[in-house]
């Protein structure tokens, strides 16, 4: 008996499981946007998961909130801004291209161009041919 009781608690009692059928919007375009958005939103109570794949209640609430805002006609940008204002920049997996994050985005291209110039200088600008 206790065995089924445990089952009841763990498999039935926990009512959240990533995206649930009841959450899905009937409008596929809005639903796609919702999925896209939620893959960029961090589940704040999990280790390192987005809300799209997380089982937590927190993630579920955010998924519903995002869909609610989408139905009301908010743009993706507005929804992300709203989430950032409420929970902080930590919630976005892709940091905004602003402030100190610009350095993060430009670091790769900068190293590449700098490296390329160095390579070209060393090999073509050098007088020390053999």
């Amino acid at each position: 008996m206790w065995f089924y009781y445990l089952f009841f608690i763990f498999f039935v009692g926990t009512s959240a499981f990533a995206v649930e059928p009841s959450e899905i919007l009937s409008d596929t375009r809005l639903e796609n946007r919702a999925r896209n958005l939620s893959s960029n939103i961090r589940c704040l109570v999990c280790q390192n998961e987005n809300i799209d794949s997380s089982d937590s209640e927190f993630a579920k609430d955010l998924r519903l909130s995002i869909r609610d805002q989408l139905v009301k006609g908010h743009t993706d940008d507005e929804i992300e801004k709203f989430l950032v204002s409420k929970y902080g920049a930590f919630i976005l997996f892709k940091p905004e291209f602003a402030g100190y994050n610009i350095f993060l985005y430009l670091f790769g291209p900068f190293v590449f161009i700098f490296g390329l110039i160095t390579v070209l200088y060393v090999f073509f600008g050098s007088k020390r041919g053999n």
Partner: peptide
């Protein structure tokens, strides 16, 4: 301050 860097960032960059 706290920021996250995840999959969407790496895909883009």
């Amino acid at each position: 301050e706290q920021v996250s860097v995840g999959e969407p960032f790496y895909e883009v960059s």
